[in-house]
Amino acid sequence: MRDLERRYRHLLRAYPAGYRQARGAEIVGTYLDLAAPERRWPSILDVADVLAGGVRERLRAAGAADLIPGVRLAAVLSYTTATALAGFWATAEVVTTSRGWGAPAFGPFATTGIVVWAGWLLAAVVHVLAPARCRRIAIGLALVLTATVVPVAAVLDLPRPFLFVLLPQATLGLLALAVPSHTPQRHRFIPLAATPATSLVAVGVLSGESTWFYRFSYGGAFLPETGAVLLVTAMLAAAVLSLRGDARGIWALLVLLTPVGLLGLYPLTENIAPVVGASYADFRVITATAAAVFMLGAIPLAAAIAIRARASATATPAAAPSHARCPTCGK
């Protein structure tokens, strides 16, 4: 067996065992047909394709295939929120002032966060104008900027946005990677359309304020308020779609619980810090609280999938997923 074939077979463990047994050889054969003769390792795109296919098939087997359209809906709401926040923070970086005791500055801007927010706003423009492939690359670059600003600012001793700002932004951005590829341009304009409103809010409430705005002034309250708006929007979408017998909204709501929780990281950590004996919400308090939010956010989603799987298993045999059937005769 060639190295490449062995590696594809190894990757195929992402699929359920029964499905792998029935169709594994056929799928691996197709990957090998598509691969260049000299290739020895699966490409990154193939790895992502196998893993995504495996997740899809596992969800299908659990009777939760509609989770994927739900994630896409959550991605649209998530991307709109991330872009709206970028518009707010980018404006705040410009309109606040560093005059005052100990206020940080990064050239004419408040912090290095301006690079991060510019990355997200650029991604929103690319989302409207460029083909699908470039859109995901732009979101990926904005995510890289969001992640790298922490070590870069530490090494160069520059001011940066706080973790309770960057962590929800990165989580919303990660979810935004699942935004649907084939959508009309007018729909793709929605995330960018949200930025003028949030920029105006920033101008109205933060002009002339200290560049400590991320923690103090209205800036500290903006994230939990955004989280509340996102939660209410997701709940409304879930209610409206449920009335039509469409479970997408409920899945989207469950997926969005984690980003909504992270948007409340600032008040959460401020309250948790004294309880755990910390004098303020430092790096450890924020990362530990974020980890707890991730775990708590995953519980309702995992429970919903488990309930669906149980319901699917006890359903009539006619509703068995296709991998349980003979792939040759379809029976």
Binding site: I27, T30, V50, A52, G53, G54, R56, T328, G330
Partner: peptide, 23 residues
């Protein structure tokens, strides 16, 4: 890509739009 294709083929088989012809 194959992962996407076989997901679509599964759904089309479930819907009865395609059949296996041979191998």
């Amino acid at each position: 890509r194959p992962g996407t294709l076989y997901g679509a083929l599964d759904r089309l088989m479930d819907a009865g739009f395609i059949e296996v012809d041979g191998e």
